[in-house]
Each structure stands twice: as structure tokens, then as C-alpha cells.
Design a protein around this nucleic acid. Structure first.
Lengths: 258, 258
DNA sequence: GAGTGGTCTAGACCACCAC
DNA sequence: TGGTGGTCTAGACCACTCA
């Protein structure tokens, strides 16, 4: 048994430049990049297990510890889920225990309760300029607009206005959305191969316009939370823009600062 | 040189029970607990360096890697800050590069700009029941109430109503607050030894009451963001309750979902 | 050059899970 | 019982900082 070895990295450092900017990229970061690329390319479907740490270590010719560090970071970013004794799995919205990972609206009393959906609209049309820009749509490319209500019991609570790139969501119809059970982001994964990784939200207060007020069963001018969300998939590619109008009479938007 | 050793942990496992609930606590978690306790006890002041990984490893009789993992987690929780080549430091609000870690209000255009403070009020009084409960105040214990405005240029943007446990903030006066430069949480650290670790916020939309509207230079009834914040120090102890009313005409509350 | 954190390795052992 | 992730160790070497 030998304890000391001085074998250098089997993978040559990706940046052997003498003194340029990027300066250095650790092995585990390179591994991580390769893994993300595999996720992006669909090598492993959402919910499926990826190879074991030992297998990946062998594949990439690095030690288990290095693979481990790469996976650790990806798990911290919610790209992967580790389950001791079972394996490491591609994160998915379809069967997420932590449901409502992206819906931060919570009843003032009691835990997060399920909400009913009511689809209002689903059609393909040209997106407004700001939305088109946010989604980086090609000139003339159509978008899918979805409008819907979320109800807590009988009470409408959320009015969502959702825009998706037409090219990615070819077969999306009202029928499709109405038939589907479970989170919408789950449907996006399973039927369109689009997985939402992270999102940025901008929150404002505004007065309800007449049409919005009616849909939310509130008097016109009633204060609402406006939540604009831009969602990204792998590679920081924007793939959804939405604006939610939240009625905060009996609910609030919860957030954790740290 | 020996490569195999079977010396058990020098620190006996904190839970040697045969089969009870807690089931297991890894060494690095125990180290972490000890480190947090040292922070809490003020062994190292905010901004100061903690001992090196090697020193800590020696002190706790574990390997550097184990200390490392403990510190990694604490850095991820913003308790510590690592600086390569220099050391590991106790996180502080006083000199935070990432200023406004807790203020999520951002101008619609341009990067986060500094805001002016205007103190309205600072007095000791009995807290409303809900605040007293949130802060776990003793029966009859007084609280410090601070009211203030934040202004972007000439425009008032935030009206804050802040409540602090009187016992922890004995010497806090308006003079004190007015003299101080830099983030208020920095003052809390330096002058009162109270460090804010994390916070929970509840966000709602509401209509401005007359007095609030006047202070924010808005018409009464104008929609505002109401941001209730409960802040915690070490050991999840609540030490501040505040409600901010945000004018979102030219600003928004930004949030990142992941 | 000395000291710090950062990376990487190899190997042992433990806890959990499924068959 | 075998495979998976989880913990822990020891040691080598690298990158960064500062005197």
C-alpha cells in the first residue's frame, strides 16, 4: 500500500495559460460544467438517477472527492437531489416535496394549503415589446400567453399573466393545461423538456384595474401585489415571463433573508 | 509514516445512545455548534479573524478537513467570511461589501443607490401585543420604538417602524442614531453586541393611511408595499421587529428564487 | 518566505436502502 | 449483502497575501 503519490491531475488544467485573466479553474468546477452540460443535453431526465459518484469519478478520471464537491454545489443550487443509500437524482418540479418552491404566497393562518386553478386564456400571439425583450424572442416570433386564476377555496387570490417562447412550447393548448394535474412547471418539464432552474422577481404595490378587480372579486382600485417573474433554465436562458397580481387580504408573500 | 489508522474520534460522539431519535450527529456539526457558541459568546468580535483551520483542528483534536466542512457551512450561512491568503473572519454588517443585504428595495433604473436617512422618532414605550409576542418580551418589559424615513434624493421612499427589546438596547437614543454613519445593523453590532443573522419577511399590499401618505409625499389611499420583518440573532432569538412601508413608484422589491 | 485558505487524492469506515 | 451517499483522516500541492 502506498500513501504518497505525486501523480498530477489526469485532466490537464483547462487553463494552462501563463498569466491571463481567468487565472484558474479548479477541477471540480470543470466537472460541474460537464455535468450541467449533460443535464442540459437531456442525458438524464428530471427525476432520474445520475451515475454514482464512483462511476463518475472513473468516467472523469478524478477522485470521488472531486466529483463529490461538484455534486455538492449542484445540490445546493437545486439542480440535483441527493438521497443517502439510493443515489443522486435530477431535481424535478413534478414530484417535488417542497412544492410551491416558486409560489411564495402563503395564507396568513395555517400552513401552505393547495389552491385551485382556473384557466382563463391560452393563445399564441405577439408579445409586448418588454416581454419580447426579456425573453430574447426573435423578431416576429410568436409567444404563448396564458392567463389563469388561483383560488383558495372559493376566493380568487392570484391572477397570473404568463408568457412563453412559442418555439419552445409548440403543442401547448388550453386543453393541455386543463387536463394536467400537478404543478405547471412539472408539465413544462415532462411535455416540453423545459426545466425552470431559478427566477428573479420584482415586487410592487399597485391599484387594481377594473378588469383585474372583477376577476379577483375586489373593488376597483384595491391595492394588489404585482409580482413580475423572469424564469431561467440551464445556462441562464430566460424561458418564462409572468406577472402575478396577488390579493393580500388573507395571504402574504413570505421571504427569508440571510 | 503510517497510512492506516483506526483511532476513533477523539471527541466521543455526542450521542452514544443505542437507538434513540437524534440517531447521529457528525463531528463537523459538533464543531460547528462549538464555533457558533464562541461567536455567540463574543470570543471573536464581528470583523475579527478567527483562528486558522490548523489551529482549530488542533484545538478540537480533529483533522483540518473536518474543521473545514464546519466553516464551509457557516460561511454559506453568512456567519463567517473566508478570504484566501488572509484568514476567516466573523461576518459583519458594519463593513459589508454586499451592503443592503437586508434592504431589497432597488431603483427601477440603475444599480442600488445609497439612501438618506431621516429619523422621526426614538422612544421607549410598551410594545403592541403582537410585537411583544413576536419579540418574546417579558411581561411589562419596555421596547424601543424607532421611526424613520429613507429618501432617494429628495423623494421619501421608505417609512420604517422599528421595535427593539429594551433590555438589549439600553443606551439607544435619537442622538445615537443621528450621529451614527453606516448601516443601522452595524451600529447594533458595535454598540450593543447584537448581530442580525437572518430575518423573515411578510409582504402585503395596502392603501396608505393619511399620516403615512403625508410622510411619503403620496396621496392618501395610494398603494404601498408593507414589509414586516422579524430578525433573529444567534440561536434563532428574535431581536427586532419592523414594518416598512415602501413606495414602489420608482422602486421595486427584488427577490431571487431558486 | 511564512502563513492562510483552496484543491485534490486515496482510503477507511459509517448510515441508509433495497433486494 | 452489496451498493449508495456521508463522514473523517492524512498528506501533498496550489493560489493568494503580506511582511
Amino acid at each position: 500500500m502506498w500513501c504518497n503519490r505525486e501523480v498530477p491531475n489526469s485532466i490537464p488544467p483547462a487553463n494552462a495559460q501563463p498569466s491571463t485573466q481567468p487565472s484558474f479553474s479548479p477541477l471540480y468546477q470543470q466537472i460541474k460544467t460537464l455535468l450541467v452540460r449533460s443535464l442540459q443535453g437531456g442525458e438524464w431526465r428530471p427525476g432520474a438517477a445520475i451515475p454514482s459518484e464512483m462511476e463518475l469519478a472513473a468516467r472523469f478520471k478524478v477522485s470521488q472527492g472531486t466529483v463529490r464537491k461538484a455534486i455538492d454545489e449542484m445540490a445546493a443550487e437545486n439542480l440535483l437531489v441527493r438521497r443517502q443509500g439510493k443515489g443522486t437524482f435530477v431535481a424535478t418540479h413534478a414530484e417535488d416535496k417542497t412544492k410551491y418552491r416558486f409560489l411564495r404566497l402563503t395564507p396568513d393562518e395555517g400552513g401552505p394549503a393547495g389552491m385551485q386553478r382556473r384557466l382563463l386564456d391560452c393563445r399564441r400571439m405577439r408579445a409586448p415589446a418588454d416581454v419580447a425583450q426579456a425573453l430574447a424572442l426573435q423578431a416576429g416570433e410568436l409567444a404563448v400567453q396564458v392567463r389563469r386564476l388561483l383560488l383558495a377555496g372559493e376566493q380568487p387570490v392570484v391572477l397570473d399573466d404568463i408568457w412563453l417562447p412559442g418555439s419552445l412550447f409548440q403543442g401547448l393548448t388550453a386543453e393541455h393545461l386543463n387536463t394536467h394535474r400537478g404543478p405547471m412547471y412539472g408539465l413544462f418539464e415532462v411535455d416540453f423538456g423545459v426545466r425552470m432552474i431559478r427566477a428573479e422577481e420584482k415586487i410592487r404595490a399597485l391599484a387594481a384595474a377594473p378588469e383585474e378587480a372583477e376577476l379577483l372579486a375586489l373593488p376597483p382600485g384595491h391595492p394588489l401585489l404585482s409580482v413580475e417573474r423572469l424564469s431561467f433554465t440551464y445556462g441562464d436562458r430566460p424561458v418564462e415571463w409572468r406577472r402575478g397580481l396577488y390579493s393580500t387580504a388573507s395571504h402574504h408573500y413570505r421571504n427569508e433573508l440571510s
